[in-house]
């Protein structure tokens, strides 16, 4: 059976680093190689930054990070209740007209093996990311 870990994190920017450290320890103990650990670290940080950025309640909100350590995979879900975002307004970043924001989701998709994003405007966002052990 997979081991489950849950973190509840205040929606403040300064705690993203704490989550990143915890996640990289977990990925390391699960036996991932350095590159995969780095991928997981960045992807989870991006998801947490997303939860912090889009937090309409600002610093009053907290978000949850669920980690599932399976035999052959590491699943991390970042769930916030800070209002979600409009998927229709999300644009894939274009290399020739890069903007300051909007790279996070793109990077998560590039680094993880499976990514599911559920977002509901007015409610919140859940980003589920899977990395397979090789």
């Amino acid at each position: 059976m997979a081991d489950l870990l849950k973190f509840s994190v205040p929606g403040k920017a300064e705690y993203v680093g704490t989550v990143r450290m915890a996640i990289s320890c977990l990925a390391n103990s699960a036996g991932f190689d350095v590159e995969a650990i780095e991928d997981i670290k960045v992807a989870v940080s991006e998801a947490c930054s997303n939860a912090v950025c889009h937090g309409t309640g600002g610093e009053l909100c907290s978000y949850e990070v669920f980690c599932e350590l399976g035999e052959d995979r590491f699943i991390v879900s970042v769930i916030d209740q800070s209002g979600g975002f409009d998927v229709n307004e999300y644009e894939e970043p274009a290399p020739d007209s890069l903007k300051e924001g909007g790279l996070g989701i793109f990077i998560i998709r590039a680094l993880m093996d499976e990514v599911d994003i559920f977002t509901e405007l007015g409610i919140g966002t859940r980003i589920k990311m899977v990395k397979y052990a090789r």
Binding site: V42, S49, E100
Partner: peptide
């Protein structure tokens, strides 16, 4: 040693 999209965003700007 570490940078993510928030840093990349600053550099793009």
């Amino acid at each position: 040693s570490y940078m993510d999209s928030t840093g990349l965003g600053v550099i793009i700007g």
